[in-house]
């Protein structure tokens, strides 16, 4: 009849059946998210670039032109383009903020479904994150192409996807928690927007870390910026595409520890709590 149902144990097995089911679901949700973004027009992919490019243009105008902020020179020393310094940090930030915000939406998107059929709900969030990474890779590609035009590329560019992946894991960890809490308290999504907009300026994206004063208004500002977990991820990305240096091992280790730790804790929390949410009337 309909399905050719073979015994899973008879097949050459690389993944456990549960892991394979999980992987298929992640793929389905990622496809759904990607289609939702680009279904409406052929130029969808270009439209998706418009937002980050506009952000780069606006911030470059305000900080680079009006405030005359200067960026450190690139590896080949010829381009001191504030916009590119900004862009290299922004790529990572966009991965982070899109996933944190999206997590709550992806959770809502499947919560009715989950009441009718069992599936590991976290796959919806992981799928959304995968779609975000795919979309952001286009931004990253544009950045690298611009750098190539300026003859500022090196093998270190392989660390850019690493930084993006770490940002995604870190964001997913927070997103798991936010999705659970938002399922109960609906204003968490608004709160998240506010926290994220503050967070954006707590990371050296529109400024260089060295101009941050040690203390201001009695607060250890430099220390706060330095301790921000995203700081090291952005440093890795900048080393990769802007300074063309092998990222600092300490930065990489810090970023990886934060990313993996947050992801693991967030996932554990999500798994503990998501069953209860599907039982709510």
């Amino acid at each position: 009849m309909a399905v050719n149902h073979t015994d899973p144990s008879a097949r050459p097995l690389r993944l456990s059946p549960a892991a394979r089911t999980g992987a298929r679901l992640v793929r389905s949700f990622a496809e759904r998210e990607t289609k939702a973004l680009y279904k409406r027009n052929l130029l969808g992919w270009l439209w998706s670039l418009l937002k980050p490019l506009t952000t780069v243009a606006v911030y470059s105008l305000v900080f680079g032109v009006i405030y005359r902020a200067t960026a450190p020179p690139t590896a080949n020393g010829q381009a001191e383009v504030f916009a590119l310094y900004l862009f290299s940090g922004l790529v990572v930030w966009n991965v982070f903020s899109t996933i944190v915000n999206g997590s709550m939406r992806w959770m809502d998107g499947v919560s009715e479904l989950r009441k009718k059929i069992y599936f590991p709900t976290e796959t919806a969030l992981v799928g959304g994150a995968a779609a975000t990474l795919l979309q952001s890779s286009l931004e990253a590609l544009v950045l690298v192409l611009i750098m190539a035009v300026l003859v500022n590329v090196s093998w270190t560019v392989v660390f850019l996807p690493v930084a993006m992946l770490l940002a995604a894991l870190f964001a997913l960890g927070l997103g798991f928690a936010a999705a659970i809490v938002n399922a109960r308290y609906r204003d968490i999504q608004h709160l998240t927007t506010i926290v994220l907009s503050v967070g954006f300026f707590m990371v050296p994206i529109v400024y260089t870390p060295d101009i941050v004063p040690d203390r201001a208004y009695g607060l250890p500002v430099a220390r706060i910026v330095e301790l921000n977990p995203l700081n090291s991820v952005i440093a890795v990305a900048r080393d990769a595409v802007y300074f063309l240096e092998t990222p600092d091992v300490a930065d990489l280790a810090t970023a990886a520890a934060w990313a993996i730790g947050t992801f693991a804790v967030g996932l554990a929390f999500f798994r503990r709590r998501s069953m209860a949410i599907s039982e709510e009337p």
């Binding site: 399905v3 149902h5 899973p8 059946p17 394979r20 089911t21 298929r24 679901l25 793929r27 389905s28 496809e31 759904r32 939702a36 998107g109 499947v110 479904l113 009718k116 059929i117 069992y118 599936f119």
Partner: peptide
């Protein structure tokens, strides 16, 4: 039961299949 309203029927069939552990 178990349909995602935004997806097409065909996509939902695949999604349901994935949930049931089918390729």
């Amino acid at each position: 039961s178990g349909f995602h309203p935004e997806l097409t029927g065909r996509e939902n069939v695949f999604l349901n299949g994935a949930m049931l552990g089918l390729s």
